[in-house]
Amino acid sequence: MTWRMPSETSDQDRIWMAFPPGGYTLGDTPAEADQARSTWAAVAHAALRYAPVTMVIDPDDRALARTYLSADVELVEAPLDDAWMRDIGPTFVVDESGRLGAVDWVFNGWGQQEWATWENDARIGALVAEIAGAEYVASSLVNEGGGIHVDGAGTVLLTETVQLDPGRNPGLRRSDVEAELRRTLGATDPIWLSRGLTRDSERYGTRGHVDIVATIPTPGVVLVHAQRDGAHPDSAVSEQVIRELRDATDANGDRFQIVELPAPEVLRDSEGWVDYSYVNHLVVNGGVVAGTFGDPRDDEALGVLADAYPGREVVGVDARPLFARGGGVHCITQQQPRTARTT
């Protein structure tokens, strides 16, 4: 049996999410908690325009979650530590017969971060796989869905600072990671980027997830975060990533057409340099749910996305509350591809 992760532009059966439970994601005040829950709900309702949405909720939030979510959002109960479904949930794959599979990576709190807890979240991959009726594909690789992007044809983008992180996979070499991604995702052509964005490399970051750096909207084309302001340390990061992508070839042996997605004009928030990124968006059937930032560059970036995904409606959701908590629209969602699910 050969597994393959489809492109995120492939038809989807549903979107999976998790509702933020009590804890550090909610912030320190009732107002901050309401803001977080409202933003998760806004993304869910935007995605619901294009596909069913299933939300995993902590049992303690049974009544509360429904006050934020419409009756059209399906709820599933399970204990949670946090709500980043892209990372705690499975990565869905298909085989040559159209069977649905779900890769359950080892999740250890983004490399055993001292501020993170993950005992409950480490079980969500298996739970979602079972509910989805997918064949369970176990992996010993510590990895998260936000740490990979594929084109569906064999190319995978990843970063050295995530899969080769000593806090995740001590002692593993590139070849070890590549072999596991080939087995689980059908990824024959890995493209290693050297690092992620600056804020994401700091204490509360993921240590370099690729899903705020670059993505492949169609084979042969790569959208890349472009920080144009030299005052921001990500200006140098963007230049480095673009150089690496220019030197790379995809699974077809072709050079990429590189499309730059401009970073917002805002450079800092109360915590320091921001990693606001339009790259971190959700593609769902006939739409794209994109993070916006109340920024002069919002319209330009949404236009780039509309061109990159022709025929899809681009819907913006204010993602500042998500990025303040360490992620974006892509980070809190996980797509389940539409397939003839046989068992």
Rank of each mutant, 00 (worst) to 15 (best):
G89I: 12
G133T: 00
S194D: 01
V288K: 09
A126T: 15
R86I: 14
D318R: 03
R246T: 09
N280Q: 08
E119G: 06
T249I: 14
L48M: 11
Y68A: 02
P337M: 09
R320P: 05
Q113V: 05
S235V: 08
L197W: 04
A44F: 11
A248N: 02
D254V: 08
R297Q: 14
V177G: 02
P166T: 00
T206D: 09
G167P: 02
L302A: 05
S270A: 15
Y276S: 03
C331Q: 09
S97M: 07
D95T: 08
F256T: 03
D176E: 00
L193S: 01
D307A: 14
G208R: 03
P59Q: 12
D151P: 08
E32T: 14
Y68Q: 04
S97F: 05
P217K: 11
I131E: 09
L164W: 06
A308H: 04
F19E: 01
E119A: 15
T292L: 05
F92H: 12
T155Q: 05
P190C: 05
R203S: 08
A129L: 04
L181A: 04
V150C: 10
A226M: 10
Y204W: 14
G27A: 09
Q163L: 15
P321S: 13
V222T: 07
A263H: 10
E313T: 15
E300D: 03
R341A: 15
F293G: 06
V156P: 06
P321E: 03
V329T: 14
I131C: 00
G253K: 11
D61R: 09
G22C: 08
Y68M: 00
T249A: 12
G303W: 03
I216G: 01
I88P: 12
E114M: 11
A134R: 04
P262H: 05
D254F: 08
I242E: 13
Q113C: 07
Q163M: 12
Y278L: 03
V43W: 07
G89D: 12
G171A: 04
R341F: 03
E313C: 06
V222K: 02
L282E: 13
S201F: 01
G311L: 11
G303A: 01
Q35P: 00
G286V: 07
G133A: 01
D189K: 14
G111K: 00
H149G: 01
V224T: 07
W115C: 07
G22Q: 15
A129I: 07
R246L: 06
L267A: 09
T198E: 15
L261N: 04
L261D: 06
V213S: 10
D176K: 03
V329A: 11
V43C: 13
A290V: 08
W16H: 12
R243Y: 06
S270H: 14
W110M: 05
R4F: 14
A132C: 10
A340P: 00
S10K: 12
V53W: 05
E74S: 14
R320D: 06
G171T: 01
D28E: 15
D61C: 14
T342D: 11
G272W: 00
A308N: 07
R203V: 08
I191P: 02
T117S: 15
Y50K: 03
E313P: 07
A33Q: 13
A138N: 09
E260W: 07
A214I: 12
P190T: 03
R320E: 06
G294M: 12
S270T: 12
Q257A: 14
Q163H: 15
G125S: 13
R243G: 13
Y50W: 08
I57S: 02
S277N: 04
